[in-house]
Amino acid sequence: MNETLSQIDGSGRQESMLVAAHLSKRYEDGVLALDDLSLAVAPGEIYAMLGGNGAGKTTTINLFLNFIDPTSGQAIVDGIVTHEEPLTARQKIAYVSENVMLYTNFTALQNLDYFARLGGQNDYSKEEYRTALLRVGLQEEAHGKRLRDFSKGMRQKCGIAIAILKDAPAILLDEPTSGLDPKAGLEFISLLDDLRSEGKAILMSTHDIFRAKQIANTIGIMNEGKLVMQKTTEELRGENLEELYVNYMVSGMAVAS
């Protein structure tokens, strides 16, 4: 994997926003959740992590957010090592969790306001919140409603709106499409495209192979804490990603056993 990192560095591309350098995490119970992961996401790029349950995708995101400290290696955001300066690093990250659950007693607008302020954005007007909510596809009449009456998809949209409003250079998405219906999924993809063209570096974990292939610049497949494959969409052109994925899973398991 060393080559991967040096390849990226040596390729003369723009410096990466999100970098994982030989990142490993062993939990207290001895489980090696992440094993020497290295990857990089440049501004204006989408990186999709594929993998089964327990492959290490969420651990990777937790490490970037420094919710846990790495056992070895570093997670770097915009040149900042996250476990050294977690607060500064987090200011540069917007995050959407797998199952967005906001304050159920607050309306969508109240939630947005609170989290925007926490993210350091104190000057948004109500109109801008509304615009953001409309942009993620939440109907106007839902804006003033309390979150407890929202469906999973509506909450997910709010979460995405919060991430947009934070206007951070890096975006971490944990299974962002899991609660969305096909139409909303499509809208979300085009939203990601917009964000990419704005120059955000996006790291997403997903189960959705087709979406990943459709939108990502780079796809990594993870299994049991290891990055077992990493290819750009150009490299994958013409290949059957689904078959590849299943193969890697099986071979990964074979390696493991």
């Binding site: 607060l87 995050y95 969790s97 926490l118 919060i162």
Partner: peptide
């Protein structure tokens, strides 16, 4: 449980 703690600390909150 609500997941808001994660979201909150995804920001630079001490």
């Amino acid at each position: 449980e609500q997941g808001t703690l994660r979201l909150t600390f995804a920001n630079g909150i001490p």
